[in-house]
Write a protein that binds this DNA or RNA. Sequence first.
DNA 1: CTAGGGTTAG
Length: 651
Amino acid sequence: MCRLFFCYSYTDVLKTICKIYYVVKEKGKCIQREILHSMAAILKRVIHQIAHVSILNALDSCSTMAELTQHHSLLIRLGLSTNNHAMSRIINFSTKNRNFNYALRVFSTLPNPDTFLYNILIKAFLHSQTPLYSILLYSHMLERSLTPNTFTFPSVTRACNVQQLKQLHAHIVKFGFAEDVFSLNNLIHMYFGFCFLDDARKVFDKMPVRNDVSWTSVISGYSQWGFVDEAFRVFEFIPCKKNSVSWNAMIACFVQSKRFKEAFDLFRRMRVEEVELDKFVAATMISACTGLGALGQGKWMHRYVERSGIELDSKLATTIVDMYCKCGCLEEAFRVFRGLKEKGVSSWNCMIGGLAMHGKGEQAIRLFREMEEAMVVPDSITFVNVLTACAHSGMVKEGWYYFCYMSDVHGIMPAKEHYGCMVDLLARAGRLQEAKKVMDEMPMCPDVGVLGALLGACKIHGNVELGEEVGKRVIELDPGNSGRYVMLANIYASCGKWEEVASVRKLMDDRGVRKEAGFSMIEMEGTVNEFVAGGRAHPLAKAIYAKVDEMLESIRIVGYVPVTDGVLHDLAEEERENPLFYHSEKLAIAYGLLKTKQGETVRITKNLRVCKDCHQASKLISKVYDRDIIIRDRNRFHHFSKGECSCKDYW
DNA sequence: CTAGGGTTAG
C-alpha cells in the first residue's frame, strides 16, 4: 500500500488534501474525535479509490501474463476480487493474450457478472478455437436474467450458424433492438454470408436508419455471390457522400468478376469526387491492373503509393509484387520484393510463382532455397508454386524431389493441387502413362484441375486415345466450361477426325454452352485497347489490318507456314475468311508495332491460351522485326525474342 | 466492448 501511495499523481494527492482541508475548516469547531474520524474515513476511501485506479492503469501497461497475475493478486488483496469493473480488465487482458482458461476461471468466480462482462467474453471467444462458447455464454446470460444491450448482438451474431442466426434475429426484435444499426448491420452481414440474400435484403429494406456500413455490407454481400449488377444498383442508391470503404467494395466487386473496365471507370469517378485513396483502394486497383495485365496503370498506382506515403503493409506489398509478376515485369517485381523489410510467406510465394509462370524454373527453386535459409516456413501454396515451376520448365527429377520433400521435411501432405502439378509435370514432359498412373493412384478423387492438366498434355503430344478418354470425363465433370469442349475438339481436329469434331460441337450447342470469346489486350499511353479476332471496332482498324498483312508477308519470307490444327480455338462465329490471320493477338501485336518505337518491348495480355499458329508467328515476328514480345496467356508468360520463346514450345 | 473494404495457387 505504501509503495502504491508514491505512485499517485500530484493531482490525486492535492485533491485528497483539499478534501481534508474542507472538512477541517467546516467542522473544525466540533469535537476533535469527530474530525479525526471523518478525516480518516475520507482518506481511507480516497486511498482505496486511488489505489484501485492506479492498479487498473498499471494493468493497461501490462505486457505479459506473469505481470498480469501479479496485479491480479494485488487486486485480490485489496478486496477487489469480485469487483466486476476490476475483473473485466483482467479478463480482457487474458483473452487478448489468448489465455481463455484464465479468463474463464476468473469469470466463474464472479458472483454477479454484468452484461458488460458477458459482452467482453462473447467477443473474445469469437476469435477462439471454440466460437460456440460465444453462443453458450449468451444463453447463459439469458438464464441469469441479464438483459443484452446494444453491444451484445453484434458479437453473438458473428458466432451463429444458420439456425441460430434465425433465432437470434427474433431475439434482436424481442429485446427491442429492431432499429439498432449495429445489430442489424451484423445480421445483414451474416445473412449474406449464408447466402440468405432475401433475408438480408429484407432486414436492410426495413431499417429505419442506415449508415455507410449498412450500404457497404449489402454491396459486398451481393458481390461475394457474384451479383454484380445488383450490388451496383445498391451502390448507386447510396444517398449521402460515399466513403472510401463503399467505393472500394464496389470497385473490388467489379475486379473480382473480371469487369475491369467498369472498375477503372468507377475509380475515375471516385477520384473526381475527391474521395481519399487509401491502401485498400490502392490494393484493389493494383489487382485490377494485375487482372488486365496493365503494366502502365499498375506502375502509376505503385508510384502513387510511394508518393502519398500510404502504409505499405505486407498485403499491399504482395499485391504489388504480384502485379509486376503478372504484368510481365519480373525485374521490377524483384526490386520491390528485395526492398521489403518484412517478407511474409505470401510475398515469397508470389515471387516464386512469378518465376514459375515465366518459365524460370531454376531461379524459382533457388528462391525457394533462399526462403528456407531466411527461416520462413513454406506453406502448401509455396509447393504448388515450386511444382508449377518444375512443370513449366520440364524439370521432372526436381519435381519428384520436391513432391516428396514437402511431406518429408515440412510435413505438408500433398493435396489435390499438388497431385495436379505432378500430373501436369509428367504429362507435359510426354510421360503420359506415368501421369495417368499418378492420377489413378492419388488418394482423393481427381478433380477437373488434374484431369484438365492431363488433357492439355494429350493435346500437346497428340495422344488421341487418352485425350478422348480424359476429355470426355472432364466435360462431364465441368459441362458448363467451353474450354473443355474446345480442347477435345482440337485433339480430334489435329488428327483429322472431323466427324468427332462435329459431334463435340453439336454437344456444346445442344447444351447451350457458348465458347468464351477470346480477346487480346494491349495497353498504350494509359488506355487499354482490346482486340477480338476479326474485329474492326478500333479507330485505327485499317492501319492495323494493313500492318498484319505486312507482318505475315515478311514472316512468310523466312518460312512461316500457317498452323491450322487449332482453328477452333479462337474462331468467332461471324468471320469466315482467313480467320487464322486475324486472331486477336496478331491484331494486338500489329498495333503494338505501330505504336511503339524500335527497341521497346510489346506486352500483350490474352484471356485464353495462345494458339499454336499465333505462337509460331510471334516467334518469327520477334526475329524479323527484332522486337521482344511478351504475351501473357491464361496460364503463363511467353517471352518472344530473336525467334525463340521462353516457354521452349512447352505450354 | 460494437459492424463494412485489399494479397499469393488451382
